[in-house]
């Protein structure tokens, strides 16, 4: 256990160091969601005039979307970097040391978590500075950070699975539009009950990412909503468990050492 933890830390540290040494990699995920937040929170402010819209601040409504976007970016970074390790043979180098498979995966996830943490704190601070009030209070803000990090872990692990499956950075990049598409066909822009196009509402309802956004959103604009949080955490844990299972199985195939 101690060895696994030490190895996990070594891999996570390397993953974080290399990310923060590439400004071109970590700056866009920090700034792009903020930019979109600034633009959309104003451009879509008119939506708050719709009967039944749950808040007067579109910024508060839209803030959780930034965490989701950040998680997807973290996933992209983790996946692309890991794919590069496979492609260049760095994974083989690691496989020749006494490293454990679990430590390798957890370490890479740790890298995604590190980026996710910086993002989550930044988005939340900017939101608060721009006047968003968290209805669930300080404890709620804390839960937002926890959930945002768990979501980053979930999508990060999914990114690792894609990397292990495709083994190339381009492969990872080409799958990304699909993950973003999931986000686009969710309740990111309007509450589900205000979506009037039926097929879109139905898709948003069966789309698990809607529940992740809604859990984060409930803490910001409502306070403590047990059902939203239950669904949000539930789907997040399912995402983590599912992608961890897939990644572990794929790692065994990719790292077939005896």
């Amino acid at each position: 256990m101690k060895t696994t933890l030490r190895q996990t830390w070594l891999i996570a540290r390397r993953s974080i160091i290399r990310t923060f040494r590439q400004p071109g990699v970590f700056i866009p995920p920090l700034t792009f969601p903020l930019m979109l937040m600034a633009v959309n929170s104003n451009g879509l402010r008119a939506a708050t005039h719709l009967p039944g819209f749950p808040t007067h601040s579109f910024l508060a409504f839209f803030l959780p979307f930034s965490f989701m976007q950040g998680a997807l970016f973290a996933s992209g970074i983790a996946g692309t970097d890991f794919a590069r390790d496979i492609d260049t043979g760095f994974l083989n180098r690691l496989a020749l040391t006494p490293i454990r498979g679990s430590a390798l995966l957890l370490g890479q996830i740790g890298g995604a978590l590190g980026i996710g943490a910086v993002q989550a704190v930044l988005y939340l601070s900017v939101g608060l500075a721009a006047g968003v009030r968290i209805h669930a209070g300080i404890a709620g803000a804390f839960v937002i950070l926890i959930l945002a990090l768990l979501i980053a872990i979930g999508f990060g692990t999914l990114g690792l699975w894609i990397a292990l499956r495709t083994g190339s950075g381009e492969g990872v990049q080409s799958q990304f539009p699909l993950l973003f598409f999931l986000l686009f066909i969710s309740s990111m822009n309007l509450p589900r009950n205000l979506i009037e196009v039926r097929w879109f509402r139905d898709i948003a309802t069966i789309n698990p990412t809607s529940y992740l956004i809604e859990a984060l959103r409930s803490l910001v604009i409502e306070g403590w909503n047990g059902q939203a949080l239950g669904l949000g955490f539930g789907f997040t844990f399912a995402l983590i468990a599912g992608s961890l299972l897939l990644a572990t199985r794929q790692l065994k195939i990719r790292m077939a050492r005896t």
């Binding site: 879509l44 008119a46 939506a47 005039h49 719709l50 009967p51 381009e170 990049q173 080409s174 539009p177 973003f180 598409f181 686009f184 066909i185 309740s187 990111m188 822009n189 309007l190 205000l194 979506i195 009037e196 196009v197 097929w199 879109f200 898709i203 948003a204």
Partner: peptide, 28 residues
Amino acid sequence: PSIFLPPMLFPLMNLLAFAGGLSRLRHV
């Protein structure tokens, strides 16, 4: 396809997300 598809997919995604998800805005 990796060069060709992204510029095709993103506007499509936007069209579906905006037209499907935001249509109630016309009642503002």
